[in-house]
Simulated scan of single mutants.
Amino acid sequence: MADFGFDRLIYGYTRFGKPGALGDFEDAVFLNNHDPEYFNRFIGERMFLKAPILRWARDHIGACSWGEIWRDAESLSEAERRVIAFNRAMNVSAGYSISFPAPSPRSFALISLSARRGLSQDDVDATWANHGREIEAMNNMAHLKILSLPNTTRRGRLTRRQREVLEWVGDGKSNQDIAVILGVSVPTVEKHLRLAREKLGVDTTAQAILKAAFLNQIHIGEYALAR
């Protein structure tokens, strides 16, 4: 992206949104190469939730010029104006964002491409006019690649044993069966399942299996997912 003038990126993705909201912050994946000070404030302090591009992305798929939204003063709330002012103060003043197609109503993914310092929004728009389709295609490919990788959210990754017991439960094995297969006691299996549920932030083992599968941390058959 730097070859096109975009030297700072923020990618965000969740499969665990809720109606009208993005869901638990702990379940989201964020990738970025911004300065830590900017990222910690914009993402860590949840400023992005008031960003006008997020409002746009909730109802649109594809690419959007920041200028298209930032210059529409009548549509901006006071909170959105504060976010724009913060971005400009941090030299994040021109760019594009791409909202990706979602496989389910609970999924949401967005990448924001910040232009190199010194480039205006008009400069960026001119670049997009010439290379926008190529840039959008490259980002969609990157998004699909990220979806295929094991995702480690703020909750952290499951241990090898936790993944094993969840996969065996997903295959229909009882705790007693798993204990025999792994050569451990039933209480040990139950402990691994409890710790897996806690790490994933869910209440039931069935929810843990589904969530771990969505995060690509375990692999189970289509039959188990359908159940």
Rank of each mutant, 00 (worst) to 15 (best):
residue 21 A to G: 14
residue 78 E to P: 02
residue 216 N to Y: 00
residue 29 V to N: 07
residue 132 G to Q: 05
residue 201 G to A: 04
residue 29 V to H: 08
residue 112 S to N: 14
residue 14 T to I: 06
residue 176 Q to I: 08
residue 186 V to S: 02
residue 33 N to A: 08
residue 87 N to D: 15
residue 78 E to Y: 04
residue 149 L to T: 07
residue 152 T to C: 11
residue 45 E to V: 03
residue 51 A to M: 07
residue 92 V to P: 00
residue 158 L to A: 06
residue 11 Y to E: 09
residue 167 E to M: 14
residue 53 I to E: 10
residue 97 S to H: 07
residue 56 W to F: 01
residue 54 L to Q: 02
residue 2 A to H: 12
residue 143 H to R: 11
residue 54 L to R: 06
residue 99 S to M: 13
residue 61 I to F: 07
residue 190 E to S: 11
residue 128 W to K: 04
residue 197 R to A: 00
residue 172 G to H: 04
residue 95 G to V: 06
residue 35 D to I: 04
residue 161 R to N: 12
residue 66 W to Q: 10
residue 144 L to Y: 10
residue 76 L to K: 09
residue 18 K to R: 15
residue 161 R to Q: 14
residue 108 F to P: 11
residue 145 K to Y: 12
residue 193 L to Q: 05
residue 132 G to D: 04
residue 123 D to S: 11
residue 129 A to G: 12
residue 128 W to A: 05
residue 60 H to E: 11
residue 36 P to S: 13
residue 22 L to T: 05
residue 219 H to A: 13
residue 85 A to K: 08
residue 66 W to E: 11
residue 223 Y to E: 15
residue 168 W to Y: 15
residue 43 I to W: 10
residue 108 F to Q: 09
residue 188 T to I: 01
residue 88 R to G: 00
residue 115 A to Q: 05
residue 32 N to A: 15
residue 153 T to K: 09
residue 89 A to L: 07
residue 59 D to I: 06
residue 12 G to E: 00
residue 107 S to L: 05
residue 163 R to K: 14
residue 207 Q to W: 00
residue 141 M to Q: 13
residue 27 D to V: 02
residue 21 A to Y: 11
residue 13 Y to C: 11
residue 155 R to G: 12
residue 81 R to N: 08
residue 224 A to K: 04
residue 133 R to K: 15
residue 101 P to Y: 03
residue 183 G to S: 03
residue 140 N to F: 12
residue 119 L to T: 02
residue 87 N to C: 09
residue 69 I to D: 08
residue 20 G to Y: 07
residue 84 I to W: 06
residue 7 D to L: 08
residue 151 N to D: 03
residue 88 R to H: 12
residue 36 P to T: 10
residue 49 L to P: 06
residue 158 L to P: 06
residue 125 D to A: 07
residue 32 N to F: 11
residue 96 Y to P: 00
residue 161 R to P: 01
residue 30 F to S: 05
residue 192 H to I: 01
residue 113 L to S: 04
residue 1 M to G: 14
residue 48 F to G: 03
residue 133 R to A: 15
residue 173 K to I: 03
residue 120 S to N: 07
residue 22 L to N: 03
residue 52 P to W: 03
residue 215 L to G: 01
residue 46 R to C: 08
residue 5 G to Y: 02
residue 57 A to F: 10
residue 88 R to P: 00
